[in-house]
Design a protein around this nucleic acid. Sequence first.
DNA 1: TTGTTTTTTTGAACTAGTTCAACTTTTCCT
DNA 2: AGGAAAAGTTGAACTAGTTCAAAAAAACAA
Lengths: 193, 193
Amino acid sequence: MYTLLRENIAKHIYLTDDEFEQFSAPFYLQKVQRKQMLLREGEICKFEGFVNKGCLRVFYLDESGFEKVLYFAVEGWWITDIDSFTNQSASILNIEALEDSEILMITFPYKNILYDTLPKVEKLFRIMTQKTHAALQRRMISSLSKTADKRYLEFITKYPHLEQRLSQQQVAAYLGISHEFLSKIRKKVAKLR
Amino acid sequence: MYTLLRENIAKHIYLTDDEFEQFSAPFYLQKVQRKQMLLREGEICKFEGFVNKGCLRVFYLDESGFEKVLYFAVEGWWITDIDSFTNQSASILNIEALEDSEILMITFPYKNILYDTLPKVEKLFRIMTQKTHAALQRRMISSLSKTADKRYLEFITKYPHLEQRLSQQQVAAYLGISHEFLSKIRKKVAKLR
DNA sequence: TTGTTTTTTTGAACTAGTTCAACTTTTCCT
DNA sequence: AGGAAAAGTTGAACTAGTTCAAAAAAACAA
């Protein structure tokens, strides 16, 4: 149950068996079904979750009611509304399972206990947040400087197995374009091969 | 010299006088002139800096040679290429002073010593990176879901004193639009007042 | 101050991406 | 397996934003 989590942690920091035991103890496994919402706009995000199995989307509803995807999370990714979780404030994001999924969850109070009892956890999340932030900076740059077809090619190159698990509408909502336009881009790209 | 830095830190974490003394000791003050480059694409970012005075831009050169601004930093902001600094890898970003500026700098080895000797520094940078990340998420959402005029109004509302210190070309490079189009947006917005 | 360089403005022609509507294909549910 | 719902496709008309070029205004340097 904790295999994937331990592998993931090991990429950032070394923990002894005892330390990992202490780290993983406050996590509980939550199974969610496809289409189930884990977080809705306006709620306070009560969890930080590690995806053990499945696929989820973190999205935002704009003024016109259109959904824009901030990111997808599959096996090995973390999901939360970091702003809502860390400040225990109302969320502007929604989180929904796109497949039946299994999430290892930790609540806000337990995470704070972890920070206090196991100082390496501070380092771990400091490093993880830095990496996530660097990745988002690269996406921001891409969004500022590239056309939709370039961004689409970048997406399928960077996450080669993800596209098959997602509908085109979801991919379009991630790229920030209409699904009709993505359909046209795909047609054009297919011809070039 | 350290007044602004201490105020900034205090927003995130409490440090005693001794702890702040220990924290600030490895920082040195660097004065840079307008138009001076602090980092160029391809170099390894050797510093993390706190802006004590002045204004700088962190920008990216796209394939067509256009500059896109990732962010501006004025008094109280931190500047670095977080990816290049933390991994000591080649940077894709450039950092340039837009005004004569004073930066409190710390190098990579000294920052690592700080992490080891003063564990609260882990917590401090974990919290700061989380907040910066949440802010970038909001900007990403804005970029995905809003038109340029909305993004411009959002920018001047959020950073009311910043626009006066920047050229329109810089603001346009931040918003991800051409400076000609920003000029047209400003004309339209001015009429509505 | 004066000339030089940089920034900003404006208009016209263009292109990337949207919107809407109708249709086809695939997926889901029982 | 069959019907309903959701996802994907296509074309036509549109709009947001770009590009280029030329002029005006502002900032800079000597």
